[in-house]
Design a protein around this nucleic acid. Structure first.
Lengths: 129, 129
DNA sequence: ATGAACCTTCCAGTACAGTGGAAGGTCAAA
DNA sequence: TTTGACCTTCCACTGTACTGGAAGGTTCAT
């Protein structure tokens, strides 16, 4: 399979696949006589793993860690457990922050929903902020 | 006021203040004979406006837009209203996305909380992802 | 006069996950 | 044979908001 076909099969771009290879997330592909990358069907699953990792909120660096543990012949389960736990805590913090921000903005927006004030004092940029 | 004093008064750094000036968020400061930037007290309020804008979830580019409207002598109220409304919609989408992601990760994490499986098939990287 | 603390400019780098484009090679069909 | 789609490498850039550091000038106290 050539890189364009793999890209189509996995819903990504050739640029991204080369970037993944360069980043150590995909093993360097075999090459055809022409120099074109020649992927086996396994590659679809490998890219799928990367995408599932991303969907689970992991960074490419973290996905790379898991892959490297697996390459060393170990089961990366406990590491994955830790990563997911950590991500969960980060997410909770992030969501709380965003909800607080939403409150702030919601109030500002409600105030700003009033008709254009004729009296915007010249010494402030905007009374709503 | 020199730049270090303004930085302290506004809770930021000299690097950041020079960056704001370069980005057009602060008017170029007057200079002393030595070449040092010389700020008036107004600058504290100007930096405060930037910080309040950031706290309201606006980007520096958006804050710059508001400032430029104000410079043209217009009241930027309706523009601010639009920006806040847009930001609110973005936030809602972002929060929904994060909550969905939290669900996904939570499930994966619960599965991964079981004791280390002895049987991790060799053809998958990690059964939890 | 000398050292510390402050200031100046300029260049470059951070994190993240790619994206854009140039210059050139390969392959199949018309 | 030539056109078009595909592939290769390499380098640089995107956006966001700064941050780090070098090399040098200024101010003030000791």
């Amino acid at each position: 399979m050539r890189i364009g076909q793999l890209a189509e099969a996995t819903g990504t771009t050739t640029k991204t696949l080369r970037f993944y290879e360069e980043s150590g997330l995909l093993p360097p592909a075999e090459r055809m006589a022409s120099g074109y990358r020649d992927y086996t069907d396994d590659a679809v699953g490998q890219v799928g793993f990367i995408h599932r990792g991303q969907a689970a909120g992991l960074t490419l660096a973290q996905i790379g860690q898991i892959l490297r543990i697996r390459e060393h012949g170990q089961a990366p389960c406990s590491h994955v457990r830790d990563l997911l736990g950590e991500r969960l805590r980060e997410l909770d913090a992030q969501i709380a922050e965003l909800l607080a921000l939403r409150e702030t903005i919601s109030e500002l927006h409600a105030q700003a929903a009033e008709p254009e004030p004729d009296t915007c004092s010249a010494d402030e940029v905007c009374r709503y902020i």
